[in-house]
Design a binder for these strands. Sequence first.
DNA 1: CCAAAAGTGTTAACAGTACACCCATGG
DNA 2: CCATGGGTGTACTGTTAACACTTTTGG
Lengths: 244, 244
Amino acid sequence: MKHSIPDTEKPFIDAYRARATAYPRPSVTVDLVILTVQDTDLKLLLVRRKQPPFADWWALPGGFVRVGDGFEDQGESLLDAAHRELAEETGLPRDKVFLEQLYTFGDADRDPRMRVISVAWYALVRPDLAPFVTAGSDAAEVRWVSLSHERPEALAFDHDRIVDTAVERIRGKVDYAPIAFDLVPPTFTVAELRAVYEAINGQRYDASNFRRRFKRMIDDGLVARAPGKRHTARRPAAVYSFVR
Amino acid sequence: MKHSIPDTEKPFIDAYRARATAYPRPSVTVDLVILTVQDTDLKLLLVRRKQPPFADWWALPGGFVRVGDGFEDQGESLLDAAHRELAEETGLPRDKVFLEQLYTFGDADRDPRMRVISVAWYALVRPDLAPFVTAGSDAAEVRWVSLSHERPEALAFDHDRIVDTAVERIRGKVDYAPIAFDLVPPTFTVAELRAVYEAINGQRYDASNFRRRFKRMIDDGLVARAPGKRHTARRPAAVYSFVR
DNA sequence: CCAAAAGTGTTAACAGTACACCCATGG
DNA sequence: CCATGGGTGTACTGTTAACACTTTTGG
């Protein structure tokens, strides 16, 4: 949304800039809640901090939004900043990962250094891509932790609260938005999709009833039969793919 | 969430501050989508801008977040900033108005002056309080515009998009969260509550079926019968109040 | 008395839940 | 051949939607 400035307004704007830059401004970061589902539970990507504050603590990946010089060059959008951080931390390309804004955390003193406002995002990574994440990262110590049973120790800053907000959000959303499909491989079985629902909501679903629900998704054109079968320990299962 | 800084970390933090302040930072504002329901349609509060850019355009109420000096004094939280702006623009006290964070808009060039990131909030004002709003404001030109039929002309900045986002949000939320009760007087009739649903979703509801839905709210303890009746042109209706 | 809103009742369609049961396969 | 997950069917319950109907009031 680029607006041009009429010549008549230019003097006002210069005056404004001079006044505004005299006032302190907050730093703005993007923080990422990166989630996947593996072995029937929900997992979160954490990075180990190297610098104070909270040196050696586990924290959400994130970083400062690039603002340019703030005037002629206004830098990157928040979405671009989130995608850039995601790529830097996971090595995964933009189009392979679901990314959506979560909430903005801006209490005073949430960072002891200075006023920092954090725009939090959550990302959903397919389980077939998740194993490559740790390798792709630039030497920083990263780790997937399970959120289902072994909830991790306290995180840096207010990151615990951010994680809680993200989990609440996807729980509320999984039943009416097609986000579960971002947490299964490109082709998947009914049981695999059910496992995602179970991991997110922390409860078991009746296999038979879930199957009927799945049939409605087929009727609605949301998913379609894919060629082949999944050969596991027991009876092979039909595989499906997400449409669009 | 106040974290104390260990003495051993202080030198790092000072170094960090010196480095960080050298980089440009964005300005951060809060913008408010203030809504009410009157005469069976959804209304939005707009203010007329006096200063460039967009002088004389209609825009959402809002203003800069107070950051203090950014270090020892980190200023006000985003929620406090939103409540402060709400009080300044409407004169309504904190506890009379529902206020919730909406989304953060941070594209580059959304403000021609400089990089501005806007944390948008939406507020729901009871119709019995809405008439006092224009009076309470500090001489700025303000106006309620209908969103249901006569959608207003283009707004300043990306405020049209912010309004759209707010309307989408409350439409999605009205069916599972008790936000409709923030858009009726303290005591209300079934028809009045139905009018709120109709204004928000832009569709008519069968009076009889809505009544049954309302009965479930009573069973769930969400609403309770209030003393008296509403005397209008026709047959008087029972009045109810929201519980908790 | 009559228009119009308040309020009651009936029915069909459909989604959620619990559970019984058959099917196909690898070990 | 058998344990196990894949897959089918059924009965019960509660919710939604459409609509016919009665009641109560002001003008």
